[in-house]
Design a protein around this nucleic acid. Structure first.
Lengths: 338, 338
DNA sequence: TTGTAGGCGTTATCAA
DNA sequence: TTGATAACGCCTACAA
């Protein structure tokens, strides 16, 4: 149940096997020159002592920990759970281990940096909105490669892999227009979120280009309750929009519930809705929500490509800003005949 | 962007500050005896070199890594995202770091064990269904304390913290009975899941005790689609149940969508539904699902209590099997007058 | 193919 | 309060 003895060391194994410590070391190094006889003796002794080579001295010697820190904020958005899972699998497959860091503010990120440095992580992946310029600066001082997931790089010290929010928002405007919408709304996320800014910007710009009216804008959270309240307010009056683009799916689902239950409006007949993220609930028949989805697979792959290049010895040149297109998933909430 | 130099070491700092390496070490050790003058010199030099003490040699010396591995399977169930987040926050607050391990089968768990041992993790938390007896045995050999989250301990080598599934299922039977239900159904999860077994068992036993009929049982997955299909099949005939307990919320939500959209049945008027987990969608107005929720906070806290005791030096005695009651969240899908 | 020896960056012990 | 020194467990020359 609890550790009663220390881990066995290679020296312990060597003693038991009657060989030198280097022989043990070589036994566990692929492609080293050890005789079958020695190897057998070592493995037998190791088995008996439950020996596993420690990574720790290796880290000291090689200056590489094979540890990658993943920093995340709230996981209330299932998208991040997906990303985290995929990252973890891929990194493990590549011989890395994941040091998970939970952070709920820029401040707590700063506080965590010394710890990351203490474990000598090879790289940091930030899937986080709170990576501000100061934090980025602090990270840069340790010369640890940082990959910012979904937050554009603000300086030369970190790379970023982002979803093309602007392009997706433009596509939403096109879709609504093609379905015959006339009055538009945007239910926003936090004003300081770059993703939210780009989605609003792309949506508004494209509507303008199409000669359509400005969208009404409300909101300020990425949460269900925010969508619920904003939809209520936005659609209570006479001039309500007949197509609403929502900052994300949680917001969109909140909006749908509000429209149906409080205002007795039909989706998509009275109001079309589109969201962002394709969370599981978006696919439930009860919502059947048209949405855009980050190409998580490709974003993770691009991140890993950067990571490999940046942690190579010597470091290889690589992209610093990658933008990956979002994918439209058209479902029932925009299924209206123009 | 990329590491051009190695991390600075305490020796580098000592040289620059004109003091001994030990002086640097002491400066970073709380409560050590260093003069203000020396400390100032050290801190200045450290600042200049961007020095952070490394944890790595400390691990070698103290035999404690302050690393806790959390092993998870699929995160499609948001409950695990919540648990992971809470665990991570709490562990960090307690001075630990989290090594995240993704595992998709018992086999890949086994494959990962040497890595965990290699990083000399202080403990392992498994939030996983695939922790079989063999894997548990293999873990025990390394004498690393293992805490199994939501899977009962199978041997003396690991502790477990579980939700009281049986008790919750009995409460579901009571609730349905109190609301006047007469015919019952259970949409099951995987047959080899202990959680599923306990939920079915408790539900069935309690119905029997109440002198009510046996529930119809269908299903076999913890997923939306499984609930959808099973509900369809279970309620298509004339003798359909008027109260269905579902193995979890995803299943319940699938069932609700199927009943409403395919069979035009009303929830809760025609069929009452209860689930398990209280995933976000359960709270959406569109579902308003009655459900049971793991007391994640308390389960994590109990786990940490065990973890602290088991990793203490010397190890302290502690509970090996903790069962935490689930909490009933009564919502609209059981709101029927008896 | 083997063993010896030095070093990685800390902490702990001891003497000064 | 300080500095020298010996670990910790492994890897990597180097010599045998």
């Amino acid at each position: 149940m609890t550790r009663s003895k220390k881990y066995a060391s290679s020296t312990d194994v060597a003693r038991l096997a009657g060989v030198s410590q280097s022989a043990v070391s070589r036994t566990y190094k692929p492609g080293a020159s050890v005789s079958e006889e020695t190897r057998a003796k070592v493995l037998a002794a190791a088995e008996q002592l439950d020996y596993r080579p420690s990574m720790i001295p290796r880290i000291m010697l090689t200056q590489r920990s094979h540890l990658v820190a993943i920093v995340i904020g709230g996981m209330y958005n299932p998208f991040y759970a997906t990303v985290l899972e995929r990252f973890t699998s891929r990194l493990q497959a590549g011989g890395w281990q994941v040091l998970l860091l939970h952070v709920d503010s820029g401040h707590s990120f700063d506080a965590a940096i010394p710890r990351l440095a203490g474990y000598r992580v090879d790289a940091i992946v930030s899937a986080l909105a709170v990576l501000g310029p100061d934090t980025a600066e602090a990270l840069a001082r340790f010369r640890i490669p940082v990959i910012s997931f979904n937050t554009p790089a603000q300086n030369d010290f970190l790379s970023s892999v982002c979803c093309d929010n602007t392009g997706a928002a433009r596509a939403a405007a096109d879709l609504f227009a093609a379905r015959g919408a006339r009055r538009f709304g945007y239910i926003a996320g936090p004003a300081d979120s770059p993703a939210n800014q780009d989605r609003l910007g792309g949506f508004r710009d494209r509507l303008r280009e199409l000669g359509l009216p400005e969208p009404a804008v409300l909101g300020g959270h990425f949460r269900y309750e925010g969508g619920y309240a904003s939809a209520l307010q936005m659609c209570a009056g006479p001039d309500r929009p007949d197509a609403i683009f929502c900052a994300n799916d949680l917001v969109a689902i909140g909006a749908i519930d509000a429209l149906r239950r409080e205002l007795r409006l039909k989706v998509p007949d009275d109001v079309m809705i589109a969201g962002f993220d394709d969370i599981p609930a978006a696919g439930y028949a009860g919502y059947d929500l048209t949405t855009f989805v980050h190409d998580a697979a490709r974003m993770v792959d691009e991140s890993l490509k950067i990571l490999r290049a940046a942690t190579a010895a010597p470091p290889e040149p690589h992209e610093h800003r990658v933008v990956v297109p979002a994918m439209l998933i058209e479902r029932g909430t925009t299924a209206r005949r123009a």
